[in-house]
Design a protein around this nucleic acid. Structure first.
Lengths: 239, 239
DNA sequence: TGAAAAGGTGTAACTCATACACTAAGTTAA
DNA sequence: TTAACTTAGTGTATGAGTTACACCTTTTCA
């Protein structure tokens, strides 16, 4: 029952040094984002190098504290925009991590998000706080701060699980693409080869992409038809 | 990046009236639980009547504030045990609801859980705070406090979606049961009749139940074989 | 002892996923 | 100019799994 803070429990400015006071201790709340993209035919994710203790020198997920009047998804999107310069990424709530002691400084509860974007939409700039941001393949992660390894593991499991019953992977493809490019995305995600005819039959039956009528000439071979998503932002659920 | 509270941001007891003070405002964090069971062949959930403003007289999900050293799932289980007297219910994190303004008193972020139990395991007692607790069919809910209608809607969607790819519904069945009873659980959840032979073929092929060898005589008809779950606590994923 | 009520069982049709090999259209280099 | 190379693009047959469907069994009760 969302009940306990009696009326006077809200913030009051009675202590100048630490002006936000409560009758009961409150945890800090952050959002952290696992942003996946495909670069160099590998699934990679964005990490930020920590410049301060704790975990100085380790890498961490982009994220930060939720402003007191800010929605959770807005916070995740904002932190991500600050790091990547990009808005309107696919963003889905992943889960909330709140084990006591996961942050050694104070109780911190983190609402984790899963984000996906094609590499073409990302222009990662050094974070405003001059922290280093870099991409790492999920198969070769550096030492991670906090419980971010668990968060990443859950994000990866979720992404792979959703391949079976949604078109979530189409979020990893640029504005226009060929069926071979789309197939390579899937092959990267499942880490296996997929039969070309079966894949194309399946992808075209979904009614989520359309032929633009254009052809793309790349390399010394027959040009490929170019497709686009009918409705970016949306993922279809199968079956 | 889980970073901002510099060292002195942790709680300090400098203000006797409201002793928990922070440099930045912190939200309150609660857990709320959507506990489903099947009673009278209908899917029902547990609600608590609010005795105080805001939403006095409305009904709300069981839940409460997360203790500062308490894990989230532990908090949900504790609140539930206080209301229902039962432990070891199936409990799964559903999502986190944090829209500013969802609680008119202060910023409250609620981590919602989905819980399932067979009616036989539940002995709902009036809450310790003397609040009324009652079961309502999901199809006939009373006026709800906060955004609890949204939380319930998400829980119901999640439960129904999971029927397709897991044995989550087996959590709604008592220690021992007949195949007809299990079928009625499914029919209640999907609100449709299911073919008896197909259902039994399917249920027995899952390898999650076993024949106890006993027979149950109820009513004036042939007795039914009695089954039990091989591993309560566990839900199997299909496909 | 027969009528009522739920328990219990098998097979055929259909749908969907999988396996599999060749031709088409462009580029490049001899 | 043409032959070799490279990726694009296409259909069919098989097997697995899901769905539809009807009758006999075993008990209780009147």
């Amino acid at each position: 029952m969302t009940d306990k803070p009696q009326t006077s429990d809200a913030a009051t400015a009675t202590n100048p040094g630490q002006p936000y006071c409560y009758r009961y201790p409150h945890p800090a709340v952050t959002t952290d984002v696992v942003l996946f993209t495909i670069r160099d035919d590998r699934l990679q994710l964005l990490l930020i190098e920590r410049g301060n203790e704790p975990y100085k020198g380790s890498w961490a997920l982009p994220g930060g504290f939720v402003d007191i009047d800010e929605d959770l998804a807005t916070c995740a999107a904002r932190e991500l925009a600050e790091e990547t310069g990009v808005e309107n990424l696919y963003l889905e709530q992943l889960g909330t991590f709140g084990k006591p002691g996961r942050d050694p400084r104070e109780r911190v509860i983190s609402v984790a998000y899963l984000a996906l974007a094609p590499e073409s939409r990302l222009q990662v700039r050094a974070g405003d706080d001059a922290a280093a941001a870099a991409w790492f393949p999920v198969t070769a992660l550096p030492p991670l701060a906090f419980d971010h390894d668990e968060i990443i593991a859950m994000a990866h499991r979720r992404l792979v699980a959703k391949l079976d019953y949604s078109t979530i992977a189409f979020q990893l493809v640029p504005e226009t693409f060929t069926l071979s490019e789309l197939q390579r995305v899937y092959e990267t995600l499942v880490d296996a080869e997929i039969d070309k005819r079966n894949f194309r039959k399946w992808a075209q039956a979904l009614e989520v992409i359309e032929d633009t009528g254009e052809l793309r000439r790349r390399g010394s071979h027959r040009p490929a038809r170019v497709y686009r998503l009918l409705d970016r932002e949306r993922i279809a659920f199968l079956k």
